[in-house]
Design a protein around this nucleic acid. Structure first.
Length: 571
RNA sequence: GCACCCAUAGCUCAGCUGGAUAGAGCGUCGCCCUCCGAAGGCGAAGGCCUCAGGUUCGAAUCCUGAUGGGUGCGCCA
């Protein structure tokens, strides 16, 4: 039940009648007609721009259209008054019964579920970190964002696949293998040094030990050709186990892990590129050197290029190096071709902001491979800066103080991490302060929302103890109606957030809902009649507690989308 | 040099895909706090939405340009 969508249906119905009556010309499009909450509550409960949008194509004055429309809408039971305002807005005030109705509806956990994405399959790819070490804070934001987005889309009715692309095909996993080999030698009592270009991290010690446990001394003092494949496979598997554990600690569970390596030697890269070739989008050529920053070893080389400029890219991109090996772009093309081939209607990639330069070519590839049928949306997550009580958290890889996902989750818990990571939109940088994250105060949004939920649950428990169950809502005070109005926005907000791929809107909404609710609560200090619990009056209690119940249900659903567990009590 | 992202109150940020007098939280100032769940509540001040043009009934929002900041830029993923 979406009151705004319902009202919009009434509006277009009225417009149809106006057309039939000759008040409006035939053949108008109502696509741009919107029904929205007005910015200023004094303007009523809902407003429509219908008259202004239609004035020009209809060749009529906006206020005249609005007057006629007001006549039609004013006859609806749910509409108390319809008045024309400003340049041609039609402001609607709705009956109080309608708001009571929304409170009843909102008690159902299914409130806000949308059919918007019905029948549409979406693939959300996120995290996709190289399997060379534990996840760090940067990955954490992408993980939380992607996961919340997937939840959101699923809530909006889409069929969602959460996917992780394992970059296990490139040179960096060879580096990993060599690093693990050194740890393996160390496990055999050798003195080792980590040369430039290997990973010296302690987290590989156990992997070296594990390798020894499985293969004994079979690889000691043997040339790389002998052990590289085995060690690489062992090491990447170990790293993926580590990464899965990290993700689990954050509450992220993937539906699918897709290995880059599985694309090599199986003809899958070749066949994806054949698709492009078949469209005449591959050619051999030499790129101009990049201007401004010329690599010192630059020399013109002939490469196989993808004509991505046909699909909006700035330059054509190489898929094959001059030595005949694939570039990293080639398997990415094959991977996205695979996703298209699996029949998704929509693809979403969540990347770090440092991959910004990559989105045009990726969109070009998907556009070309699907003939523009499958949209690809790339969401870039900006950096996270860590603070401790306002002081920048010093991180240094060399000193071993770089912060992992696990560090953050261990300090403040997964719920706090997840919520706070979503208090900024994805393309804005985020400050994360360890001290503020666990602070119990109004300016900590996680705490505030959880606190609100907890105090409602407390009231409901007390009511239950009194033997009172929530009854038909009785809204007697404007503050109660305010809360009901906020609840009414929920289904609409879900759709807006889902359409824009913007889970942060959920977090902001929950803050607003908590605020109007607490405002009502505080008003009960002065006006005891609007309190939720009335010791000697079970009937009054039953009527009053349905509103907090509805609020707790929506908070709970919203937190669910964010992947945060609503708490019953504050400890 | 080029591309992408960003610029909104003193600070940190929202702003419903183009709507009415641009919002919230901190901070500042003034009142009220012993009440279902303490860790606060109400109110005030505070703005040329970086700048200059354009599109139209209407622009913080869309287009162009400028300025300032971030990111990236052939055989690294």
């Amino acid at each position: 039940m979406n009151l705004f969508a319902d009202m919009r249906a009434h509006v277009t119905e009225a417009l149809d009648r106006m057309v039939a009556a000759g008040d409006l010309p035939q053949g108008l499009s109502f696509d741009n007609v919107a029904v929205e909450p007005p910015r200023d509550a004094a303007h009523g409960d809902m407003a429509t721009n219908a008259a202004m949008v239609l004035a020009k194509p209809a060749g009529l004055k906006p206020r005249d259209i609005a007057e006629t429309l007001a006549g039609h809408l004013g006859r609806l039971d749910s509409v108390e008054s319809a008045t024309v305002a400003g340049p041609g807005f039609l402001n609607l005030t709705l009956s109080r019964d309608l708001w009571s109705g929304i409170v009843t509806t909102a008690q159902d956990p299914a409130f806000g579920l949308s059919k918007m994405g019905e029948g549409e399959r979406v693939n959300v790819e996120y995290v996709s970190a190289n399997p060379t070490g534990p996840l760090h804070v940067g990955h954490t934001r992408g993980a939380v964002f992607g996961d919340a987005l997937a939840n959101l889309l699923s809530f909006a009715g889409y069929d969602v696949t959460r996917e992780y692309y394992i970059n296990d095909g490139g040179a960096q996993v060879d580096v990993l293998a060599r690093s693990v080999y050194l740890r393996y030698l160390e496990a055999h009592g050798r003195e080792v040094e980590f040369p430039e270009g290997t990973y010296p991290g302690d987290y590989l010690r156990d992997v070296g030990e594990g390798l020894k446990a499985v293969h004994g001394d079979a690889f000691v003092d043997r040339p790389e050709e002998v052990w590289l494949d085995d060690v690489r496979a062992f090491a990447t598997e170990a790293m993926m186990t580590l990464i899965r554990d990290d993700l689990a600690a954050l509450g992220v569970e993937m539906d699918q892990f897709f290995s880059e390596k599985s694309l090599y030697g199986t003809g899958r890269i070749e066949s994806a590129l054949e698709v492009l070739d078949g469209k005449g989008l591959l050619y051999k050529g030499t790129l101009e050197p990049p201007k401004g920053k010329l690599p010192e070893d630059w020399e013109p080389r002939e490469q196989t290029l993808f004509k991505s400029t046909d699909y909006g890219d700035d330059v054509d991109r190489p898929v094959m190096k001059s030595d005949g090996a694939w570039t990293y772009f080639a398997p990415d093309i094959a991977y996205h071709w695979d996703k298209i081939d699996r029949g998704y209607d929509q693809l979403i990639d969540v990347f770090g902001a440092d991959h910004g330069g990559y989105v045009k070519r990726m969109k070009a590839a998907v556009g070309a491979l699907s003939d523009g049928r499958v949209p690809l949306d790339v969401k870039l997550c900006q950096l996270v800066k860590l603070y401790e009580n306002g002081q920048p958290f010093k991180m240094s890889k060399r000193a071993g103080t770089f912060v992992t996902l696990r560090d953050v989750v261990d300090r403040v818990g997964p719920d706090v991490v997840r919520f706070l990571m979503l208090t900024r939109k994805n393309d804005a940088p985020l400050d994360f302060d360890f001290a503020k994250a666990v602070e119990e105060s109004r300016d900590n949004p996680v705490w505030y929302v959880q606190y609100t939920h907890a105090r409602i649950r407390s009231v409901l428990r007390k009511a239950d103890g009194m033997g009172v169950a929530p009854g038909a809502p009785r809204l007697t005070d404007p503050a109660e109606v305010e809360v009901a109005k906020k609840l009414a926005e929920w289904p609409r907000l879900v759709e807006i957030a889902a359409k824009g791929h913007e889970p942060h809107r959920i977090a902001f909404y929950l803050g607003e809902l908590a605020q109007v609710f607490n405002s009502l609560w505080n008003k009960g200090d002065d006006d005891h009649s609007i309190r939720f619990l009335h010791d000697s009056d079970p009937q009054a209690t039953a009527g009053k507690i349905s509103l907090p119940l509805a609020v707790s249900v929506v908070i709970s659903a919203g937190l669910g989308i964010l992947g945060v567990t609503p708490v019953e009590e504050m400890r």
